[in-house]
Simulated scan of single mutants.
Amino acid sequence: MGAAQSRGNTEEKVFHNETPIQFSQDVVNHLTDRMVSPETTPERQTTLDSHVRSRIQAELEHLRTEEDNVRKEIELALEKENLDHEMNLTGGIATGEDTHDKVMSSTALLGDLEEIRTKVDRFQTRQQLSDFPSVKESGEAVVSCYKSHLKTPLDCWREVSEFKASVAHAETQYLASLR
């Protein structure tokens, strides 16, 4: 069963079509136009464009992360180099005390200085506002108005103008005190 069909038959069979095949002129024109102009269709072009854009965005993200990693490595290397340099500079001092405890890194010192600056600024701001209670009150009125009119902040124009007036008055008083 089926042995005759599974054997390789070397005879070539040719079939002839007795009914002619005809294509409409629109189909023929469309196919010849495609062969003449190998341009892509607008749909295909938008697909290609979006694919290219997504690849570019992915590559940009990859490059940004690499750049951040390199920047962090450089900063760490520079910080280590600065610490080593500071330790070498203070290593020649023989005072009997532990030089490691005595010497602080420049980054730690800068951080401490910045913290002290912010504390001084806050203290001075509090002192200045306590000299001018009208500025403090009008400022609090503006803040409370903004909080109560979240969707319509333009309704707080009176409080803002009062705040501006109190600040202008405080400025003139301060300038007069400097003379």
Results as ranks from 00 to 15, higher is better:
53 R>Y: 04
63 L>N: 08
95 T>Q: 11
51 H>L: 11
117 R>S: 12
162 E>H: 12
136 K>R: 04
110 L>I: 07
29 N>S: 13
173 Q>E: 13
118 T>D: 15
158 R>V: 13
101 D>H: 09
90 T>H: 09
146 Y>A: 10
26 D>H: 10
80 K>V: 04
15 F>C: 11
44 R>Y: 02
155 D>K: 11
138 S>H: 04
20 P>C: 02
172 T>D: 15
95 T>G: 12
152 T>A: 11
177 S>W: 04
54 S>A: 14
132 F>C: 07
99 T>D: 05
37 S>K: 13
119 K>T: 03
9 N>F: 01
120 V>G: 00
155 D>S: 15
123 F>R: 08
7 R>D: 14
172 T>A: 15
99 T>S: 05
98 D>T: 02
83 L>F: 02
98 D>S: 14
74 I>N: 08
55 R>N: 06
80 K>N: 05
8 G>S: 07
49 D>E: 09
134 S>H: 10
29 N>A: 10
96 G>F: 05
55 R>C: 02
57 Q>S: 14
104 M>G: 02
96 G>E: 09
31 L>I: 12
147 K>V: 05
154 L>D: 07
118 T>G: 10
55 R>W: 04
11 E>C: 05
150 L>T: 00
53 R>K: 13
55 R>M: 06
40 T>H: 12
1 M>A: 12
117 R>Q: 14
60 L>P: 00
174 Y>P: 01
48 L>G: 05
136 K>P: 01
140 E>L: 11
48 L>P: 00
7 R>M: 09
122 R>G: 04
58 A>C: 01
165 A>M: 07
107 T>A: 10
130 S>V: 08
34 R>H: 07
147 K>Y: 00
126 R>D: 12
68 D>W: 04
166 S>R: 10
18 E>A: 11
108 A>P: 00
168 A>F: 01
